[in-house]
Design a protein around this nucleic acid. Sequence first.
DNA 1: CCCCATTTGTCCGTATGTATC
DNA 2: CGATACATACGGACAAATGGG
Lengths: 150, 150
Amino acid sequence: VQLYCSPGALVRCLLVAVNSFSTQPAYLQVADDLRRQISSGELAPGAKLPPYARLASSYGVGIGTVTKAMQILRDAGLIESGTGGPTYIRDRPARKTAVLRPGSTLVTRMPTPAEREAHAIEPGVPVFEVCEASGGITVYPGDRWAFTTG
Amino acid sequence: VQLYCSPGALVRCLLVAVNSFSTQPAYLQVADDLRRQISSGELAPGAKLPPYARLASSYGVGIGTVTKAMQILRDAGLIESGTGGPTYIRDRPARKTAVLRPGSTLVTRMPTPAEREAHAIEPGVPVFEVCEASGGITVYPGDRWAFTTG
DNA sequence: CCCCATTTGTCCGTATGTATC
DNA sequence: CGATACATACGGACAAATGGG
């Protein structure tokens, strides 16, 4: 027997969240739907998400597609998960405020793997890079610091 | 015939770049090796990378593993690629400098999908978020702007 | 201009490892 | 210890875009 579309695709056509006829890939539709639920507060910080397998069957997609969507949300700093454990909605830490000294230049970028390890920066979190007038360069995790003028 | 490890794993054991006995996953080893070549200048901006299939065979991994490594480098803003076309090393655009007004607060974070589209922000690029004393909020692409004090 | 091989992107199914519950 | 669940990896299949003949 030769199926012309996968069983998952057959179910997917009947769902609202993931639409096969959309130009957006399925993993983005899943990620955006969860992102919407998070930003709307429907999924509060600390809440536990269903297992990948259940999300996959309820969205009508494969587990790999859910895994990719989760990777995106984790890179965006919205969720946290670990091997064997459930997936939680993250709540963002409060930011400390630093003062940008005159003559300094402030740049933002993604950290290098070494910086991620050195400062315990989680995936998807950018960094501030302060270039002092003296030439010194300092890096601040972007999820824990904000800057103002003196 | 039942193999106890994949052919790719057999070759992988003999290579330096991707080591099965390392604690780091293969896709990270591939990404880090390419990242090293980029930062060392061995792969200059504008250079064209080999096709995924050739990278996969030379590293001794599957195409899916190379695809995941490429996604990471893409999210880091180091490469650019499109369907049907080759993968290029990106060169970063020069940043314009803006002045942070007194009383304003500067924050960095990853953009929302809507902001990415509105400002044509490429994947892996964070944004500055300026909160004026008046309450107004403005977003600046992090790869095209830097901030100083007045 | 059309055809076709190449290449990237997406999706699925499966298997395995490993940490958590 | 067993069941659950996330992380990684592979391979096949297809779509879409590119580029050369």
